[in-house]
Design a protein around this nucleic acid. Sequence first.
DNA 1: TGACAATGCATGTTATAACAGTTACAATCG
DNA 2: CGATTGTAACTGTTATAACATGCATTGTCA
Lengths: 155, 155
Amino acid sequence: MPSRLQDEIKQTKPFTSRGAEALLSVLRTAAVLEHHLNEALRPHALTATQYNVLRILRGAGTNGLCGREVAERMVSRVPDVSRLLGRMEDMALISRERDLADRRHVTARITARGLAILDQVAPALEGVERARVGRLGAERLQDLIDGLAALREGG
Amino acid sequence: MPSRLQDEIKQTKPFTSRGAEALLSVLRTAAVLEHHLNEALRPHALTATQYNVLRILRGAGTNGLCGREVAERMVSRVPDVSRLLGRMEDMALISRERDLADRRHVTARITARGLAILDQVAPALEGVERARVGRLGAERLQDLIDGLAALREGG
DNA sequence: TGACAATGCATGTTATAACAGTTACAATCG
DNA sequence: CGATTGTAACTGTTATAACATGCATTGTCA
């Protein structure tokens, strides 16, 4: 029985192991999701990375967060937070201010414009979520979440 | 109960829905896997994308594949196959030859050096796989694969 | 308090991704 | 057979990722 994934990437030979298929499934699914995510964000000129930053800073509220703290909270690691935040400041999505107490820190905060854009993109993103998650029941959804967490653990 | 993922990305507020957590889990897991994958490939100066191309071309055998066919088989879509293959040709990992029957096509084939490098990296990649997949039983593994496939389906 | 290490951010550089546009060739249809 | 359409690959350009390094500031400890 050829697997769904095998068909998607036009693989002629069966997977050598279920483990390999599982890892590839994760990578493939993330690529598909990221594609849909970027499509939904494109009309608002946002990348998935920038969207992630906005969500983080909205969660932080008026206190804001310094660059290192933002980096720690990103879904995928970004080795160049300085310029990422700089570009977002240019777009007026966030503001930056050097901390007076510890002048090494630069505190980033989401602007009103950033908040407004988050509200604008919300419907499209909820659509992406519902379209893909709907067909999985609550139980299978939780199993999926747990299985993925297990994959991330260890070495 | 705070979820594992919530802790990983230092999120203070609980997820608004299981669906959102599931999508984020996929993206996060893929980022972690990709990181380990790249670490394993780094000593051989290969990126995950290049590794993917080598696997595809090894599977294709001596007939090789044209650029469009390689692109179709990639795990994540690459919009610049020409230069990707060009760089790999410079590294002598693949060879390219214009097809005489249809001169629009350029057939790519894996070289002996490319095959040798695939053999060299295999142990490290198997290590990555065993370390993460081992803790999941066969049944949970299959459920995970099926759940991910469900997420990829549909518009 | 003064040397030294550690931290957080900025900057320089290179390589690659992303997007658009162009060229060469092949297939189709009048 | 010529014009038109479609396909595959290449090329140009810009923006971003990735990596390394440097700089300013703070913390630590003799």
